[in-house]
Amino acid sequence: MPLWHVYHPPGAYDPGHKQRLSADVTGFYTRVGLPKFYVIVLFHEVAADSFHVGGEPHGQAVRVVVEHIARHTQDPRHRRHTRETLAALLAPHTTERGLYCELHIDETPQDLWMIDGLTPPPPDSETERAWARDNRPTPY
């Protein structure tokens, strides 16, 4: 599961912006075969006086924290590619709109993850493809 936390100033994202950003994020992961329902994007509005960068309030900062659970990699080239691709995905929603943006990605152990009480199927398995096709978890 990719879980995205987007911390942003008030008014940075209206409902349409949120929908477009979450659709872009979801599209990235479904193109690599993850079920759509794995993707969760949470928007956290943070008042300018509560969002400090370098010890000072920053009313135009966005911080994106991504938790990758469904897929991990140790290959430095793949990790760099993922980071750069996600930064490019974010740019129209952040830096190209004049917002300062920081991004980091954590990898949560897969064996500590469940959906509806089910352990997700192995990556790229027939069951995972069925979950993606049906857009829901089912016992296996």
Rank of each mutant, 00 (worst) to 15 (best):
M114Y: 07
P92W: 02
H104D: 14
R133L: 11
E126V: 13
T127G: 02
P122R: 14
V41P: 04
V53L: 10
S125M: 12
T108Q: 11
V32Y: 09
E126Q: 12
H93N: 07
I105W: 00
G55Q: 10
V25T: 04
P35V: 02
G16S: 11
R129G: 04
N135Q: 11
E45C: 01
H44F: 05
F28A: 02
T108F: 10
A91D: 06
V62N: 02
Q74L: 13
A61Q: 14
E126I: 12
G59R: 01
I69V: 15
E96D: 15
T73D: 13
E102Q: 12
P137G: 08
T85N: 11
H104R: 12
T82W: 12
V62H: 00
R129K: 15
F37K: 09
A88F: 03
A130M: 10
W131Q: 00
A47G: 02
H78A: 14
P10F: 02
S50L: 12
T127R: 13
R136M: 14
T138E: 13
P9T: 05
R77A: 15
L118I: 09
E102P: 01
G16P: 00
A130F: 05
P57C: 14
K18F: 03
L90Y: 02
E107D: 14
R79H: 09
T108E: 05
G27W: 01
V32A: 10
E67R: 11
E84C: 03
T82Y: 05
D14Y: 07
D106T: 13
G11F: 03
P92E: 04
T94N: 01
T85H: 05
V66R: 00
S125D: 06
E56D: 12
H78M: 08
F37Y: 13
D24G: 11
G33P: 00
T108G: 02
G33F: 05
F51V: 00
A132V: 05
V65F: 14
P121I: 07
Y38I: 02
L90R: 01
A70H: 07
A23K: 03
H44C: 08
R63E: 11
T119H: 11
R71Y: 09
K36R: 15
P120G: 09
H52A: 15
H78F: 04
K18I: 06
P137S: 12
G54P: 01
H93G: 04
P57K: 11
E45S: 08
